[in-house]
Computed example of a mutant assay.
Amino acid sequence: MIFYFSGTGNSRYAAERIGSMMDEKVIDMAKSHKDERFTFEVKDQEKIGFVFPVYYYGPPVIVKEFMTKLKISGNEDSYVFMVMTCGSSSGGADRYVSKILAEHGLEIKAFFSVLMVDNFIMGYDLSDEEDRENINKKAEERLDKIAKSILVKGVSDRKSSQFDQLLTSTVYPFYVRGRNTKKFFADERCISCYLCEEICPVQAIKMVDGRPVWVLNQCVHCVACINRCPVEAIQYGDATKKRRRYVHPSVGI
């Protein structure tokens, strides 16, 4: 059983690729969160995985909340692993999340991270097509290696250092306290397709008179609404207007 969260497809692809090699089902944390389904039963010795992107060297808030509410039965001696997708570094997210899960009876046996194309368009311009192809090619190789290690119940190939954990403890709180929605808007190119409302993991977007309106003060900042808009109409202030968008090739729009 593999739980995943994904905004623009990186982590979903990673979860599905690993799941297919392990013959394990994948479960969308965002959908489970929406359905208020937090209780699951696993078979004895069944592997349990968590796959998610790293934001500000920590887990997306929806992942953190899902984990705090998660209840799993029948998991005696289960091999529990975590795969984090990131643009550069996962910081001390491994230790941060392991503490959350430990409080709920799950001991992480292995941590893995994989570099994938960064999608944080609100902070900077995204990579060009050539760089994306190179990054995705290396990610494929990395995911295969991770899956093979999981199959034999391998151990972490890298654990966070004290400096990594300091990064998380220093930077991550800015994300948790931030995530403001004030700067989101749709420009004149909006075609009222309703996709942004449909894909928002926390229902922060509602269509009003055919236009998206952000009805929550905070969201996950997964940037799915910006990157997946088919006409690039959604912006975050003036910063994103001329920047490239990114969606994993397995997702499309």
Rank of each mutant, 00 (worst) to 15 (best):
P53C: 10
K34I: 03
E198C: 02
V114P: 04
A93E: 05
M21T: 04
V51I: 15
F111T: 10
H248N: 11
F52D: 06
I150K: 00
I150C: 00
N136R: 13
F52R: 06
I150E: 00
E24F: 00
K138P: 00
Y175S: 01
M29F: 11
G92H: 03
S78P: 05
G58P: 02
E133Q: 09
K64D: 15
D23N: 14
E188L: 05
R245I: 05
D144I: 06
S32E: 15
I27A: 02
N134K: 14
K206I: 02
I100D: 02
T170I: 10
F40S: 04
H248W: 06
V202D: 05
V61N: 09
C229G: 11
I146H: 07
T39R: 09
I191R: 12
A110F: 12
E140R: 11
A110H: 12
S11C: 09
N217H: 09
M116Q: 09
F38A: 07
M21A: 10
F120P: 00
N75I: 03
E16L: 12
T8V: 15
A14S: 14
E24S: 00
G252D: 04
L216Y: 05
V97K: 10
Y194I: 08
M29T: 09
P53R: 07
Y194T: 15
E16C: 05
Y236I: 08
Y79F: 09
D131M: 12
R243P: 08
K64M: 10
D77A: 13
N134S: 12
G154E: 08
V208C: 06
K145F: 13
P60I: 06
I100Y: 01
V220A: 04
S127G: 04
R179Y: 05
G92S: 05
N227W: 01
Q235W: 05
Y172Q: 11
K69R: 15
C229A: 11
D23R: 08
Y55W: 14
V97W: 10
C229F: 08
G252C: 08
Y56G: 09
A93R: 08
A110I: 11
E129D: 15
Y57F: 15
M116L: 07
Y246F: 15
C219R: 05
L106A: 04
G252L: 07
L143Y: 03
R12M: 14
K159C: 04
D44F: 06
A186R: 11
S73D: 07
Y175T: 01
K145P: 00
V83T: 02
F5M: 11
M84N: 01
S161H: 05
P212R: 04
K99L: 08
S98D: 12
G9F: 09
G154Y: 04
I253L: 11
D131G: 03
G178V: 02
I121A: 05
D128S: 12
E232M: 07
I135T: 15
Y57N: 09
V202T: 15
L166R: 11
K159V: 13
S113F: 00
F111Q: 08
S98V: 02
V114R: 02
